[in-house]
Amino acid sequence: MKKPLFALAAAVLALAQLPALAQSWPARTVKIIVPFPAGGPTDVLTRYLAEKLSTQLGQPVVVENKPGAGGSIGADLVAKSAPDGYTLVMATASTHSIGPYLGKLPYDPVKDFTPVVWVGNATNVLVISNAIPANSVKELIDLARKDPGKLNYATSGIGTISHLTSELFASMAGVKLTHVPYKGTQQSIPDIASGQVAMLFDNIMTAQPNIKAGRVKAIAISSSARSPLVPELPTVSEAGLPGFQSVVWFGLLGPAGLPKPVVDRVNAEMNKTLALPDVKARFAQMGFDQAGGNPASFAQVMQRDAEKWSKVIKDAGVKPE
């Protein structure tokens, strides 16, 4: 009951400060919270973009890691901070489209935040063990149908994007697979190479070394269009599961009631940053798709994704046991 009141108060407060703020922002260091550990893809990318943003804004932009609880600790921190534009969060599908539907979170993914800019998408690649007598999505599905529950899939944990993507795959293909969770997708590589685990949806970039070395086979990618990083791979949708798509969005959000001039400024600067040729090249190299656009389109993406994943979570009955 307290929450809406708090949000309202915060919004009123923000409105009162608005004229002064809009002109002077940014007057000091802008902090971007990365709700994941240092060194992960989100962290590395945010640090890269923060460097670019700080030259454009003329104020330091620092990255602070607030890892924990699937990103919800960092997201919550931003939800509860002052909407003055000095604290933003690099949110992802896990903090805003998945986490809230897995269990109770201290924040509301829509009401407690102001969407600022959609930065991009990360794509997964479906890799399977060399020991599995299948070379395409169709053959894999046939194999899984023959022996329900026999094929294992690795994920980076319950309720993670790799888990839900696999659940989506299984439900669309109408097959039964056994879930084997790991702490991170890379930890499962030895077990996939040895054939104990059959398949994994892994980040397109981190999966590369083992695909190139021939330790695992890549058969498809999870996005709706082919990736310039691996143009030879079909999408899962083309290869046998029409309509299948699973990408992870990430973008900047602020607390609820962030003044519009600040939102517009960050949005404009980020769009400018994304258009830089070296940033474009970096994104392509790291296997990320660029997004950009206005805050409203970002809000739409968030909503669409939330609907999609909450349905997968409900249908598959994903919850901590």
């Binding site: 007057a27 000091r28 260091t29 902090k31 330091p60 620092v62």
Partner: peptide, 9 residues
Amino acid sequence: LQQVKLCRI
């Protein structure tokens, strides 16, 4: 104080 240069992170 947060706008003082030395206090900046």
